[in-house]
Amino acid sequence: MNDEALWRGGIFLLVLLLVAGMEFWQPKRSWRESRTRRWGINLSLIVMNVVILRLTLGAAAVLMAVHVQQQGWGLLNLVEWPVWLKFVLGLLLLDLAIYLQHVLSHALPIFWRLHQVHHADLDLDVTTGLRFHPLEILVSLIYKVAVVVALGLDPLTVLVFEALLNAASMFSHANIRLSPKLERVIRWFVITPDMHRIHHSIHRDETDSNFGFFLSIWDRLLGTYTQSPRDGHLQMVLGLDYCQQPQQVSLTKLLLMPFRPLPKPAAESKKP
Rank of each mutant, 00 (worst) to 15 (best):
A97E: 07
R113E: 08
L104W: 13
D121G: 02
W112R: 06
F111Y: 14
I110Y: 13
Q116K: 15
V103N: 01
L94P: 05
A120Q: 07
L89E: 06
V126K: 04
A120V: 08
L114V: 08
H102N: 06
D123L: 09
V103I: 15
L89I: 13
V126M: 11
T128V: 15
D125E: 12
V103Q: 05
W112E: 13
H119K: 07
S105P: 09
L122M: 11
L94Q: 04
D95R: 03
A120W: 04
V117S: 03
A107G: 08
H115Q: 09
V88L: 14
V88S: 02
P109S: 03
F111W: 15
V117P: 06
Q101M: 15
L94R: 00
L92F: 08
S105W: 14
L122R: 05
V103C: 09
R113D: 09
A97N: 04
L122K: 00
L92N: 00
D125N: 12
D121I: 10
L108W: 15
P109M: 09
L89Q: 02
H118G: 05
V103L: 14
H102F: 14
V88W: 13
L91Y: 01
L124N: 06
T127I: 12
L96V: 06
L94N: 00
A120I: 05
Y99L: 10
H119E: 07
A107T: 13
A107E: 15
H115I: 11
L94G: 00
D121K: 09
R113K: 15
A120H: 02
Q116P: 12
D125P: 13
D123K: 05
L100D: 02
L89G: 00
A97W: 07
G90Q: 00
L114S: 00
L93T: 01
T127M: 10
L124M: 14
A120R: 04
F111E: 07
D123C: 07
A97D: 07
T127R: 09
A107M: 15
H118M: 11
L104Y: 10
S105C: 15
L94D: 02
S105G: 14
L89Y: 04
